[in-house]
Amino acid sequence: MDDEPLSEWADRRDAKIGHLRAVPLVPGEGPQAGHVNPEAPRLIQRWNGHAWEAYGFAANLAEAKRIQYPDSKIETPAQGPGPAPKPLGPGTGRHRKPQASGPERR
């Protein structure tokens, strides 16, 4: 078995110190995916090399991302309706249902 030297393992562990993660504060078992319930408040946790410790608080996912990634320019979605979806163009694509014609059209 090829064991890695302890110094390399320690270097990898120390490289992660200070990493932040946002955990939704919702009832349930443990952390969930970040995209679930984006309006829920978030606890910001920091890795100290041994365990995740409380670091801060955010009101929602967008604010949590601003805390986690202060140098990046995260755009928040514009409020209001977006552009209208384009209807399907003409054609008989592989998965399209044939168009009914006449009065029996639903």
Rank of each mutant, 00 (worst) to 15 (best):
E53Y: 04
W47K: 03
A62V: 05
P90Q: 06
P90N: 02
A62N: 12
R66Y: 06
P98H: 00
G82E: 10
I17D: 02
A62S: 11
V36G: 12
P70H: 14
E29R: 15
G34P: 06
P24H: 05
E29F: 15
E104H: 09
A58N: 13
G49V: 01
R12Y: 06
V36L: 14
R106N: 08
W9I: 07
K16E: 00
R106H: 09
G80T: 07
P70Q: 02
R46K: 14
D11E: 03
G28M: 07
R42I: 01
Q79N: 14
A84R: 15
L25N: 15
S101K: 01
R106S: 01
W9V: 11
E4K: 03
W9K: 04
L6Q: 09
L88S: 15
N37V: 12
S72I: 06
A64N: 07
I44R: 02
N48W: 00
R66S: 10
G91S: 09
P87G: 02
P98N: 01
I74K: 12
P70S: 03
R66E: 07
S7W: 00
P85H: 11
S7Q: 08
A10W: 02
H95G: 11
D3F: 10
P98Q: 04
A40Y: 00
D14R: 04
E8K: 05
A54R: 08
Q45S: 08
L61C: 15
N60L: 14
E53K: 03
Q68Y: 11
G82K: 13
E63F: 08
P81K: 04
P81S: 14
A51R: 04
R106W: 05
P90G: 02
Y55R: 01
F57M: 13
G28R: 08
V26L: 08
S72E: 12
P85S: 05
G18F: 00
